[in-house]
């Protein structure tokens, strides 16, 4: 088990290195192809050529790509100094460099934005798990009933409506018309209640989409599991049906749900762009959109790395949980 975790962690580091390499490669090529100059971007509009040259030297943009990449990685691990002669700026580890656009260090930007996206994803996830799995189980147990048909129709709507549509609709109704909820981000540590209240609407909208998928998945899985031989065995023991469902059917139903959950949660942190844009939340997704349009390489790199880290970490956690749930899975 421990050896497995260590091996997986090494794999995580390797994967992250590959991600940085690819991102670095792509965004190094883009300014080359479009003729943009990061140093000029950094220096501002009216800078004179000597200032631009100075900045280029200070940021190390005059070095070969490989060297720049190595310095970037080194900066992540140990921090780095940007120097142009006597003009030295220290960037502590983990150093993601400075935004070409705002000239601000990237790391604080990431730590600023990350909690927003994380809160959005985790809150929505809890909501959709409860609602989706609950609905799915009930639908399976009352197959063909009015409840089942209503829930599955709603679920179909949920999976087919795009998030910006439901988001806009929710905003229009609950915020602008009824004035019930406004969307804002208040850090959890500052005021948990305001935190939840400010994120409730995006949570509901996101959860509606995912709960719909999870309800359908749970229902289908549950029905399949209920037909399994070991469920018949459980009944043959004389267990009451609620116990059969809870102890025997539900646990087996959770396995595929868990797998999908890891993927969804990871992807959500990496890609909550639509939701954040719809609700004007200053999360990672928003930062990424802006950075891409600004060709702001350090920010793009930073966001990509954090998102990739999260996707990979979520998968690792799921794999570990999977092994805990299903004893047949061997961690080797």
């Amino acid at each position: 088990m421990l050896a497995y975790i260590v091996r997986r962690l090494v794999a995580v580091v390797v994967m992250l290195l590959v991600v940085t390499l690819v991102t670095f490669g792509i965004f190094f090529l883009v300014p080359k192809l479009t003729g943009g100059d990061p140093a000029a971007l950094f220096a501002g509009r009216q800078a004179d050529p000597t200032a631009i040259a100075g900045i280029r030297r200070k940021l190390g943009l005059d070095a070969p790509v490989i060297v720049q990449y190595a310095r970037f990685i080194w900066g992540l691990v140990a921090g780095r100094d940007y120097a142009n002669g006597a003009d030295v700026t220290h960037c502590a580890a983990p150093c993601f460099g400075y935004s070409f656009k705002t000239e601000q260090p990237v790391w604080p930007l990431l730590t600023d934005r990350f909690p927003v996206t994380f809160s959005l994803a985790v809150g929505a996830c809890v909501l959709w798990l409860v609602v989706g799995v609950g609905t799915g189980v009930l639908s399976a147990l009352r197959r063909g009933s009015l409840w089942d048909r209503t829930a599955m129709t709603a679920a179909l709507a949920g999976v087919s409506l795009p998030i910006y549509f439901t988001g806009m609709l929710a905003l229009a109704v609950f915020t602008y018309k009824l004035h019930w909820l406004t969307v804002s981000y208040v850090p959890f540590t500052q005021n948990p209640f305001a935190w939840a209240r400010g994120l409730l609407l995006p949570w509901i909208v996101l959860a509606f989409l995912y709960a719909a998928m999870y309800a359908r998945l749970t229902r289908a899985t549950m029905l399949e599991i209920l037909g399994e031989d070991y469920i018949r065995t459980a009944r043959a023991k004389g267990l009451a049906e609620p116990v059969v469902i809870r102890r025997h059917a539900l646990r087996a139903t959770m396995t595929p749900v868990l797998t999908i959950l890891g993927l969804d949660l990871g992807a959500l942190v990496g890609g909550a762009i639509l939701t954040e844009t719809t609700f004007s939340l200053q999360g990672l997704g928003q930062a990424a959109v802006r950075a891409i349009s600004d060709q702001d390489l350090p920010v793009i790199l930073g966001v990509t790395l954090v998102a990739a880290f999260f996707v990979i970490a979520a998968n690792l956690v799921v794999d570990l949980l999977y092994a805990v749930v299903d004893p047949r899975v061997r961690l080797t």
């Binding site: 031989d229 070991y230 018949r232 459980a234 009944r235 023991k237 004389g238 267990l239 087996a252 299903d326």
Partner: peptide, 20 residues
């Protein structure tokens, strides 16, 4: 009565036992 007065063994023991 099930399991106490009357009990049953099934054809395929692998699928009849809960894997978890």
């Amino acid at each position: 009565l099930r399991g106490r007065e009357m009990a049953m063994i099934f054809q395929d023991p692998l699928s009849s036992l809960h894997p978890y």
